Simulated scan of single mutants.
Amino acid sequence: MILEQQFDLAVVGAGIVGLAHALAAARLGKCVVVIDRDAQANGASVRNFGFVTVTGQARGEVWRRARRSAQVWDEIAGPAGIEVLQRGLTMVARRPEARDVLQAFLETEMAEGCAWLGADALEGRLPGQGEVLGALTSTVDLRVESRTAIPRLAAWLEAVHGVTFLRGVAVRGVETGRIETSAGVVRAETIVVCPGDDLATLFPEHFARAEVTRCKLQMMRLAAPGWRLPAPVMSDLGLVRYLGYADLPQAGPLRARLHAEQARHLEHGVHLIVVQSADGSLVVGDSHHYAATPDPFARDDVDALILDEFAKVFGQAPPPVLERWTGTYASAAGHSLAEAPMPRVRLVTVTGGTGASTAFGLAEEVIAGLYDLPQQGAAA
Rank of each mutant, 00 (worst) to 15 (best):
R346G: 06
H268A: 11
R346H: 12
H268C: 11
D300R: 13
A292L: 15
R257L: 15
A332L: 04
Y329E: 12
L305P: 00
A359K: 00
V302H: 01
A359G: 07
L282H: 02
R344T: 12
P319F: 02
V350M: 11
S287W: 01
P343Q: 13
A291Y: 11
V348Y: 05
P341A: 09
D279F: 09
R257A: 09
T328V: 14
D279L: 11
E309A: 05
V302C: 01
T351M: 12
A356N: 06
A311Y: 05
T358Y: 07
T349A: 15
V274R: 01
T358W: 08
R346W: 04
E339K: 12
R346T: 02
L347S: 08
H335A: 13
V348L: 15
H288E: 14
P343R: 13
D301M: 08
E309Q: 12
L272V: 00
G353L: 06
A278K: 12
T358S: 10
M342T: 14
T358N: 08
R299N: 10
P341L: 05
P318F: 03
S277T: 08
Q316F: 09
D301T: 06
V284K: 03
D303N: 14
L322Y: 02
W325T: 06
V275W: 00
A317D: 14
A263P: 04
P319A: 04
T349L: 08
H289C: 13
V302A: 02
I306G: 01
S277L: 09
T328Q: 12
I306L: 10
S277H: 13
L266G: 03
H259M: 14
R257V: 14
L337D: 04
V275S: 10
A332I: 01
R257S: 10
P296G: 11
F314M: 05
A332Y: 05
P319W: 02
A330C: 11
H288F: 13
